[in-house]
Amino acid sequence: MSVQEKFQLYVYDGDYSLPSLDVECIKSILYTVVADVPVQVRILNNVKHCAFYSAPTFVHKNLLFKSFSETVLYLRTLNYNIDSNLSPKQCSETLAVSNLVQSKLKPVIEFVYWVDQRNCDEFTNVWFMKALPLPFNFIHTGKFKQKARDLIETLYPTETNLDLIKEYLNRTATDCLSILSTRLGASDYFFGLTPTTLDIVVYAHLAPLIKLPFPSNEINNIISMWPNLATFIKRIDAAYFPDLPKHSKYLKERERTTTSDDDVSYIAILILTVSATSLVLGFAFSRGIISSKVL
């Protein structure tokens, strides 16, 4: 038991009944839950964790695995394999469909999270700023934004109009979702009665788009065109994350920021007053209206 207790998984915090807000972290957490790995999930919410680990990092003794795929490969060597019952053909399909999901839905997620200005300013950025400790919230959000922008730029090098890019992305997402829906059909999971890696990948890419309260998110409406995908997400939630709180840990702060117009103007007034007085005093002082002897 002492060996197993040393499994640790460092992830970004979750919210809105999501285990984490980061796609890769969701994958790692869900895999460990499904495969029954006795792992201790740690959240990047203090300076020490943030300084030493990136998310998701799987730690066993002194071995570090910094991505989902590495983690899965390592867990397989320890006999935590959830794909062991699949036929070679199903494994081949897993690889193909998870690649499809990754290549079509990842840009959509990056766009909705970080490139869409309104979502980023009003939700994503605010949330990560609150969830991470001080110096790291700037570093991580900066990195996220840069990465998302790079991805969108390399995918659409000829297009600069964000609305058009959004339309293309929505179209590819629609394509991909209809493929997933056809593949899933009426069954519980993609391959039979137990979830496999493919189910995990699909869940990790769909759940954030469904659950997070983005100010503008058209994908949510698109997903609701395929009810079997929505029930698929609910099925996994019920089976593996039954007791995640629905209400937000950071929502109260979020509400304050949305109604914080008054706060901002108070600060602005204060700054203006201070600068105006100092300007007047400085002018008076330099012209000798107030002499230094008086002061």
Partner: peptide
């Protein structure tokens, strides 16, 4: 439809 879905998945692979 299922075969078409399959085809798209392998093409993206």
């Amino acid at each position: 439809n299922e075969q078409k879905a399959d085809m798209r998945a392998y093409m993206s692979l």
